[in-house]
């Protein structure tokens, strides 16, 4: 179960109009998770990441460093599809991240915890928590951080579609429990020759504009009753061959 503090963070996140106004939310999240600071980096294609949240210099410097060097808990979490928890950087074997172990000594970060943000093969980015003192996260904090990473991923992937009055997203959270949504994402990515995240956005856009649940739209795509065009529109008819390049 998530903590009351994290529930409040998620409420603020949902109400928030955009990431630019999210600085206070990020600080609250760091406090809730018992860390000094945190960053959220978005994968922008390629290896460079765009810093979306950054609560303070210590967290920002560490994030910059590991993405410049291309090694560290963050890149490892992204590549390995699993969280990487480092309760004490001083105890990490130097050969694990050779360059980072040299450079990080000058930084204020002592404990670092990285949580990948994504949906299956869709890698959205990484949430990195930084603490000036060594020590593990509690099990509850790990759970909270996972929930936050998941919410941020969902937001990043749905942000193209504004909900009614900037509120609810076009689909409910449990739509992503359905295999058919992921299958449809894969199909649309091939049909439109776009990336998986782009394909999911097109599906969501279509669900939103047609006022139907994402799961229903996905079922139609998988059954080939619906084929989206490049604008995310579908005419409801299956098209055996796309007339677009």
């Amino acid at each position: 179960m998530i903590s009351d503090g994290m529930a409040e963070v998620l409420r603020l996140l949902q109400r928030d109009e955009g990431f630019d106004a999210a600085a206070d939310v990020a600080v609250l999240a760091a406090v809730t998770l018992g860390v000094t600071g945190l960053t959220v980096s978005l994968a922008t294609g390629g290896d460079r990441a765009e810093l979306m949240w950054c609560t303070d210099d210590a967290a920002g410097s560490f994030e910059d460093l590991q993405f410049t060097l291309g090694e560290g808990p963050g890149p490892e979490a992204v590549r390995g599809d699993a969280m990487v928890l480092v309760p004490d950087l001083a105890l990490v074997r130097p050969e694990r991240w050779p360059a980072l172990s040299v450079e990080a000594a000058g930084l204020a970060a002592r404990a670092v915890f990285c949580f990948p943000m994504g949906i299956g093969a869709i890698r959205v980015g990484v949430l990195t928590l930084v603490r000036r003192t060594a020590g593990p996260l509690t099990d509850g904090q790990v759970g909270d951080a996972q929930v936050l990473a998941h919410a941020l991923a969902g937001r990043a992937l749905g942000s193209v579609v504004p909900g009614p009055n900037g509120a609810a997203p076009a689909d409910s959270a449990d739509a992503l429990l359905h295999a058919v949504v992921h299958q449809a994402t894969g199909m649309v990515s091939v049909q439109l020759d776009v990336s998986l995240p782009q394909a999911l956005l097109r599906l969501r856009a279509h669900a939103y504009s047609s006022g139907r649940p994402l799961t229903d739209v996905s079922r139609d795509v998988v059954a080939r009753r619906l084929r989206l065009d490049l604008n995310g529109n579908g005419d409801g008819n299956p098209l055996p061959v796309s007339d677009k390049d």
Partner: peptide
């Protein structure tokens, strides 16, 4: 859980190809 979702996405990719 992530592996499972990747598998579903790949089913879709292959089905369409």
């Amino acid at each position: 859980l992530t592996s499972r979702i990747v598998l579903e996405q790949v089913k879709g990719i292959l089905a369409e190809r």
